[in-house]
């Protein structure tokens, strides 16, 4: 139990996928202009990461490994992730067209999001049990959402500030991301 809790804390804070591992920077910078879209993207990623984590873990442990096809891991994982993202896209387009418009191109980009593939691969690499895999995938996504929402909050705030002309837009966003990353370094050592 404590092991799982520590795993969760590690995935959300200590080794935050965006701010510590630097995975998934694309949606992080692209969808974090407004808090509402950030939350929407976060929800989508939570779903994709968790389900992708489960499916890939099952496929790895019950198909690829027994059949000695471990070398197909990357292709199969991407296949699964791509299908899942397609599925999520369809659902979102039906359920919330507004969110669909707001997320725009970044929704299908979850597919190429290294964070999702990263979770799948890390699950396999660290030889997680089923429970561990579930907790890890979900927490990783939670950490991603946390970083995204935090960043969106900051960006909404500085949008109307007096930013020097040369730093306006992406430049100040990247500087802020770097500072946020530094802040999260404070969690290092939280979990041994």
């Amino acid at each position: 139990m404590t092991g799982l809790l520590l795993l969760a804390v590690s995935a959300v804070l200590v080794n935050n996928f965006v701010l510590a591992r630097f995975l998934g920077i694309c949606p992080f910078l692209g969808v974090s202009k407004k808090i509402e879209t950030a939350v929407g993207m976060g929800m989508a990623v939570i779903f994709v990461m968790t389900v992708a984590g489960v499916v890939t873990w099952l496929l790895y442990n019950y198909v690829l490994f027994p059949l000695d096809l471990v070398y197909l891991q990357t292709i199969v994982f991407i296949l699964v992730i791509a299908s899942l993202v397609q599925f999520v896209e369809m659902v979102i387009q039906k359920v919330s067209p507004v969110l669909y418009q707001a997320l725009g191109i970044y929704l299908p980009l979850i597919t190429t999001n290294c964070a999702v593939l990263g979770v799948a691969v890390l699950n396999v690499q660290n030889e997680h049990s089923f429970a561990e895999m579930l907790v890890f995938s979900f927490s990783a996504a939670l950490g991603f959402t946390l970083a995204l929402v935090l960043f969106a909050g900051i960006r909404e705030r500085i949008e109307f500030n007096d930013v020097p002309e040369s730093l306006k837009g992406t430049a100040i966003a990247l500087i802020t991301a770097g500072l946020l990353s530094l802040a999260f370094m404070g969690f290092a050592g939280l979990v041994k």
């Binding site: 659902v91 387009q93 039906k94």
Partner: peptide, 23 residues
Amino acid sequence: LTLTGVGLVAAIGLGIASRVFAV
């Protein structure tokens, strides 16, 4: 076979979903 199998499952799944969630 494995790859084809996974691909087919995904394709069928998406095919059904595209009908259910058609916009």
